[in-house]
Each structure stands twice: as structure tokens, then as C-alpha cells.
Design a protein around this nucleic acid. Structure first.
Length: 559
RNA sequence: UGGGGUGUAGCCAAGCGGUCUAAGGCACCGGAUUCUGAUUCCGGCAUUCGGAGGUUCGAAUCCUCCCACCCCAGCCA
């Protein structure tokens, strides 16, 4: 799956060099999520990288669930992850689980013990932590560090056989408690957990740690390039140590890259879980969430997400990408293919006084201004229509060329109308505009050559289809929600991130709207039907607004 | 103050000692076209590469020192 020119980045350069040097027959990568949550757009980067390399180099990429901690994982998450990857347009060469290798991992552990490279530590977690030292002080050896091989072997066997409670013992690698890299200070390899595993059931009561599973899983699968994010940098020494001291079938290489950060949102699984649990969003697939399922429900396309990642690139530099780039990517993807349609979100009634009461006319118009092959649709014009509330101003600011008292505006694909009179409610708010239309101005014509700059969208009042429209905005109102006060990131939540508009007026054709189609509501934005939308109760989500230089400019001058 | 990293425009990012008075994208600012204030188009936007020294005929690219920021002390991944 490639979207355009082959990407260039430092990882692909390494791979190119490896191929040139004849180091590998085939390039093998893997995408290794833990099935304990939903995938988010940050994962897209890893997916795009790993699967993209597979596709471009004719290699393999396995989807491997790193399911080494039965306490927090479930099959439900695994299924959603598979669904999301497929939706993004990728297919794994094979599906695997770290748990598939539990027997092998156990053998590897025994191998280390037999070579005096691992020992069973019988201290408590607290004791082990205390002895680990600190960032600046070295650690101390455990009193159990020099247990004999036979004793270690039988203790480890007993751990496996369930003879101990959780936490009574752990298996540790015997490396160097003085190491400046804390990961090398006799890291824990196995811990006891009397907890059923979603795949292996009660077979095991000891489970390998990430460090003891990841590299070995890579080696078993023949992974050549094990790509992960920067926070595992310090683990590489341990990764390499294990590969070196174990009889593994291949020697994978770990390469780290920086993770994706987006402004105006949060990306950590922990925080996203909290937003869901606290009810700040409607679920993992709430269209405001940066999860794949949220973006999908919002209406983002797989192409736009892939293009987004491609344009961001892969480096080792910590980064924060602007939300605007993501928005630009979905607009670029949708602009050439989204059928245009007219929809009035905040209706204001307009009565065209000189248009006959009983008359209506059908206007056939193209569904795309630049691409006739997308087809045509029919609009109905009549005496009473709705226009957007914001397309009328009592006292228009400089440069406003929509409707105002005495002014003319063109109704898109229809006639020019002139505002004659405004009917107001008790509070003085306009509730109805009385206009005249110029019958000579059909089809974009102005026979007398007069310029009518403003063009607004409209919908025939009696032919409109009602719908609920949900307008989404950024989840947080500050660019960096975790910036100043890490504890109160919830205070930075944008109170207006969701606006539900009921009784919006859509052009009649939308009564048969295709649920798979992303539409452009002209002059407003791109919209996609929500998963809860039904033919008799339409719900549209705003994917993204159109670029809008007018409101920006007018806000400027009014400030 | 231990170790590992990273620093090129507001945000990304090419660049790998000479073709760099530094690609490209986003954002921004013009201007043209337009029945979407959209799209498209055209133009502008770093004499400078975290800083200071040094090596070299020549440095963003090599060396030294300094500064800033990120990650690491789970029986999480």
C-alpha cells in the first residue's frame, strides 16, 4: 500500500545499507501492540512504518500481540486492533502472540540459569527496588545473587509449578548492579502472577517481562529490524545482551524513532482511558478522540491518515505536530472526491415575495465544480427557503458581501435576491427575511453585467430534509494540555468541543444519503454520517470545516 | 550532579565537508482565477543551521567546550 513516492528516512537508509551489504535475505518487521487499549494516531506512525517497509521491500511484517501481562489485556482489545489495522489499509504477513512462545521463553530462561546468567531472587519488590540504586548511585547485589545453579533451577521450576504466591520470587538476569544503565542492574525476567491469561488460560502462573519477551519474540520470528519508540532506547543494551546470551535463531536489531505527538490533544493510553472512564467523551470511538476508531467515526479516511504520517516523517527528534496538518490532509483527500451538497445548519427563513406561491422549479446542478464525472443532482427552488443565519447581517462589517438590508446576494445555483425587509421577534432578532428575486439571473447569469460578489447556500423550506449535525472542535482548548500543570490537564478540556445542532436543513437528496459517502456541505465543511445515523434520523458528523479566510479576517478587524 | 538521546524558520523536515547567500510540506502574508470568502494558480516568507571556539582553501555537515530540552530508578509495555 503506497500513496505516492517512496518515503525516505533514516531507518530506510539503514535498511538500504543492510541490503547493499548483503546482511539479509528479506526484510522482516513487526507491529507489536499490547492488547490493553485502542490504537491511536500515534500507533499509525508505527503501523505505517512497519507495514510500509514490508510493502516496499517485499518483506514480511507480523502483527504480534505483546500479551505478557494478563492483568491488563483482553481479546476484545486485540480484535479492535486488528480491525483498525485493516481499516488503515494494511495486512499482516502473519499473526502472532508473545504468549505463543511462552514454552520457548521458559527454555531460554533455563538456559540462562544453567549458564549462571540468571538467578531466583527471593526478596520483596521493595527490597529489590531499594537495592537498585538511583540514577546517580549504583545498586547493590542481592543476597540471593550467588545461589547455585541447581537451587535456581529447582526454585524456578517450583515457581512455574505454582508452589509460591505472587511476589515471593522473581527470576533476574545476572548482569551488573553497578551498571550506569539501570536496565542492566539485574533486570527482572519473570514474575509470578496467579492470573488466567486470555490465551493460555491457567497453563502458566509465571509470565515473562517485556524485556524478556520482546527481543526473543523478534528473534524467533526472524525480525531483521525491530522498530520501536525512543523510550525503549535504554532497553537496547538489555535487548542485545539477551540476544547475545541466548541460543536464538536470529539476531534482530532494535532501532528507535520518536513518537508522534499532536497538539490540542493527549495521546497516552492512560489519559485516553481516563477521558473515557470519567465520561468526558462518549467512548473510545468518540469522534473527538485521537484514536483510530474515533477518527474513523468522525469521517477521516485511511488515505488521509497515511498521508499525514508520511508528511510528518520519521526521525529521532521529539516533536509536536500541529493539528492543522492533519486537517489539511483530510481536506486534500476529500476535496477532489466529495460530492457537494447544500445544508443549512442554523436556518433563517427567507421569503421571496415576487416568486409565485405555488410554483417550484427543479434545477440540475453538478455535484462537483471541477469534476463533472462525479455527476449531477437536482435541487428544488421555491418561494420559501432557508439560508444560514450567519449569511445575514443587520449592520455588515467592512468587506462583508453576504445579505444585509437592501443588499443583493446570489443563491448558489439559483437566482440573485435582494433583501427588502426583516421580520423580527420580540428580542429584535431577525426571524424572516423578505426578498425579491431577479428572474433574469438564473444559471449564473447577470444580463446587465452587474457584479454580485456574495454567493450563499440555501435549501427549499418545504423540500428540506431534517438532520442532526454534530460539530466537533479540538478536545482541548490549549495546544499543550499537559504543559503547565500536569495534574489538571482536564481543566484544559474545551467545553465547546461538541456542538449538537438539531433540525438542520439539508437539500432533499440527502434523504437517501449514502452512509459511506463523505459529503462537502458547500461553504461549511466535510461531513460524514455517524454510526448511529439512520434514514429517518440522520446524524452527520463534521469531519473538518472548510478553510475559512473570511471569519479569520473579520475577527481580526473587529479586535 | 549517572547513563542514554535530541537541537536546521511558528510546526514538521531534507541535508551525510564544496553544486547551501539551506530542498519540500504545513502555517502565515500578498495577488490572479472562481456561481463554494472553498479548490486551483502565481509570488513572498532562515545571509543562516542551539551557542562559543577550532580544523580546513572551504563546515549545517569534522573536533572541543558550553547551553537547552527529552527519556530512564514497574515484579507495566
Amino acid at each position: 500500500m503506497s500513496d505516492s513516492p517512496k518515503p525516505v528516512n533514516f531507518i530506510r537508509q539503514i535498511i538500504d545499507d543492510d541490503i547493499k551489504a548483503g546482511r539479509h535475505q528479506a526484510i522482516v518487521t513487526r507491529f507489536p501492540p499490547e492488547p490493553n487499549g485502542y490504537l491511536h494516531i500515534g500507533h499509525c506512525k508505527a503501523i505505517w512504518l512497519n507495514f510500509g517497509i514490508k510493502d516496499d521491500y517485499g518483506g514480511r511484517c507480523t502483527l504480534r500481540f505483546d500479551d505478557t501481562n494478563p492483568l491488563r489485556e483482553s481479546q476484545k482489545y486485540a480484535s479492535r486492533i486488528e480491525e483498525d489495522i485493516r481499516w488503515l489499509g494494511y495486512e499482516w504477513s502473519s499473526l502472532a502472540h508473545a504468549s505463543d512462545y511462552f514454552d520457548q521463553f521458559y527454555e531460554y530462561a533455563v538456559h540462562l540459569i544453567k549458564n549462571a546468567l540468571a538467578y531466583v531472587d527471593s526478596q520483596s519488590g521493595d527490597e529489590i527496588r531499594r537495592q537498585r540504586g538511583t540514577l546517580t548511585e549504583p545498586g547493590m547485589n542481592s543476597p540471593y545473587r550467588d545461589r547455585g545453579i541447581e537451587e535456581n533451577l529447582s526454585l524456578f521450576q517450583a515457581m512455574r509449578d505454582g508452589e509460591f504466591e505472587d511476589g515471593e520470587h522473581v527470576l533476574r538476569a545476572k548482569i551488573d548492579m553497578q551498571a550506569s544503565n539501570i536496565n542492566l542492574r539485574d533486570p527482572v525476567l519473570y514474575r509470578i502472577r496467579h492470573h488466567a491469561h486470555q490465551r493460555t488460560g491457567d497453563k502458566w502462573c509465571i509470565y515473562p517481562m517485556y524485556d524478556f519477551a520482546h527481543g526473543q519474540g523478534d528473534a524467533i520470528e526472524g525480525v531483521t529490524h525491530s522498530l520501536c519508540t525512543l523510550e525503549f532506547e535504554d532497553h537496547r543494551a538489555l535487548y542485545d545482551w539477551l540476544i547475545e546470551h541466548l541460543p536464538v535463531p536470529s539476531t534482530p536489531r532494535q532501532i528507535e524513532f520518536s513518537r508522534l505527538n499532536l497538539n490540542y490533544t493527549v495521546m497516552s493510553k492512560r489519559l485516553l482511558t481516563q477521558l473515557v472512564d470519567l465520561g468526558h467523551v462518549a467512548g473510545w470511538d468518540d469522534p473527538r478522540m485521537p484514536t483510530i476508531s474515533g477518527l474513523r467515526r468522525r469521517g477521516y479516511t485511511p488515505e488521509s491518515l497515511r498521508n499525514f504520517i508520511a508528511s510528518v516523517g520519521i526521525t529521532r527528534k521529539p516533536n509536536v505536530i500541529e493539528m492543522g496538518l492533519l486537517e489539511k490532509c483530510i481536506r486534500d483527500d476529500l476535496d477532489p472526491k466529495a460530492p457537494r451538497v447544500m445544508a443549512v445548519l442554523r436556518p433563517l427563513k427567507v421569503v421571496i415575495e415576487n416568486y409565485p406561491e405555488s410554483e417550484t422549479e427543479l434545477i440540475e446542478v453538478p455535484s462537483h465544480p471541477q469534476r463533472p464525472e462525479i455527476g449531477c443532482r437536482q435541487l428544488t427552488f421555491s418561494r420559501e427557503i432557508f439560508i444560514e443565519r450567519s449569511d445575514y447581517e443587520d449592520d455588515p462589517p467592512k468587506g462583508y458581501f453576504r445579505l444585509a438590508p437592501g443588499r443583493e446576494v446570489r443563491l448558489r445555483h439559483a437566482y440573485v435576491i435582494r433583501c427588502k425587509e426583516v421580520v423580527r421577534d420580540a428580542r429584535g432578532e431577525p426571524v424572516e427575511i423578505r426578498c425579491d428575486y431577479d428572474p433574469e439571473t438564473a444559471g449564473g447569469q447577470t444580463p446587465d453585467g452587474r457584479k454580485v460578489k456574495g454567493i450563499i447556500h440555501w435549501v427549499s423550506a418545504s423540500h428540506a430534509v431534517n438532520a442532526e449535525v454534530r460539530l466537533y472542535d479540538r478536545l482541548f482548548s490549549v495546544a499543550d494540555p499537559l504543559g503547565a500543570r500536569k495534574h489538571d490537564y482536564l481543566d484544559a478540556l474545551n467545553p465547546d468541543s461538541l456542538q449538537c445542532l438539531k433540525d438542520c436543513k439539508l437539500e432533499m437528496g440527502l434523504g437517501q444519503a449514502d452512509p459511506q459517502t463523505r459529503y462537502q456541505f458547500e461553504r461549511v465543511g466535510y461531513f460524514f454520517q455517524d454510526s448511529a445515523s439512520r434514514q429517518d434520523a440522520l446524524v452527520f458528523n463534521r469531519i473538518v470545516s472548510l478553510r475559512d479566510t473570511w471569519t479569520r479576517k473579520s475577527q481580526y478587524s473587529s479586535n
